[in-house]
Simulated scan of single mutants.
Amino acid sequence: MQEELTVPGQPGSLKDVLRHRFLLKLLVSKELKVRYRGSILGLLWSYVKPGIQFLVFYVALGVFLGLEESAGNRGGLPNYAIYLFSGIVLINFFTEALGNASRSIVGNGGLIKKIYLPRQLFPVASVWVSGVHFVPQMVILIGACLFSGWRPSLLQLAAAAAGFLVVAMLATGLGLLFGAINVYFRDAENLVDMLLMVATWASPVLYSWTMVQSKLGETFFNFYQLNPITVGVETFHYAFWLPTTDGSQSIPPHLLSVWIPVALAISAAVLLIGQLVFRRLEGRFAQEL
């Protein structure tokens, strides 16, 4: 049976990414090679950067501001190092994925103007590259958790997987959205930079969710929980940090029954909106670039 012919250059969808998995693999490999070309440490930077970031935050917040529980400070968080790093691992994945995806179309302008291939491949490849950097950080986190007596349940591991899916979908959707808009309005890069600057502080990466609830009340806390990144970070704390404590700590109310499904729905909606906007604008990418 003869296959139906299609006109090249027509707007596509994320299904095209699945159909062109080989091209996606090539783009991921290209981005990694270009990023570490001439670098002495190479992929080891995936360990160095979060390590330095962790040390700075741990000393400033855990030691100086007393967020680390100790014999003389019972108001802090036990195993604050695990708490902090489990949040940093996920927020680093999001910030890198969104930052690179929003610049991916403009950054690959030379290739886009020369040949046609599904444009969605570029933002998705950027998210995958961030996933490659995410893996070694997870190895360190799991190693530290095991050293601290980590014994997670299947429910906790499933919650962490759901939290990662929430953040990955959100980063992909926003990456498609801002990646397309950035072709027409380069101010989008500055807007993304501001969003990424706020992202770390708008989620309980450095502090406890109980601080938000106690200081700002239940009503604001519910709005706070509508942030999918917040839910993702809380699932990582639930899966990696909570099993290393003495059991006196708790997770946000209704995290598993309400907030994870809500976060998945919001991230899926953002992914759909990002894809629709991308399809609407991609027709003139080559001309605008």
Rank of each mutant, 00 (worst) to 15 (best):
W259R: 02
F236P: 06
P253Y: 05
V258H: 13
L255H: 03
F240C: 04
A268P: 09
A239Q: 06
S250K: 15
V262N: 10
A268R: 03
A239H: 00
T235P: 15
S267L: 04
E234G: 03
L264Q: 11
L264G: 08
A263T: 06
H254R: 14
P252T: 03
A239N: 04
L242I: 00
W241Q: 06
Q249G: 09
I266L: 15
D246A: 14
W259A: 02
H254A: 15
T245E: 14
W259L: 03
F240N: 01
T245M: 11
I266A: 14
L242R: 04
H237R: 14
G247H: 10
E234P: 00
E234V: 00
L242V: 02
V262C: 08
I260C: 05
A268E: 08
S257I: 05
S248L: 12
F236G: 01
I266G: 09
H254V: 01
W241R: 04
T235R: 04
I266T: 13
D246F: 05
A239I: 01
A239R: 02
H254G: 08
T245C: 08
S257N: 11
S248Y: 01
L256S: 12
A265K: 11
V262S: 05
P253F: 08
Q249M: 15
S250Y: 04
P261H: 10
F236I: 01
P252N: 12
G247D: 11
I260Y: 03
S250N: 13
S250D: 14
W259S: 02
W259D: 02
S267Q: 07
I251K: 14
I260P: 02
L242E: 04
A265H: 09
P253T: 00
F240H: 09
W241E: 00
T244R: 10
L256V: 11
L256H: 02
A268F: 06
P252H: 09
H237F: 06
I251C: 13
D246V: 00
H254W: 15
L264K: 06
W259C: 05
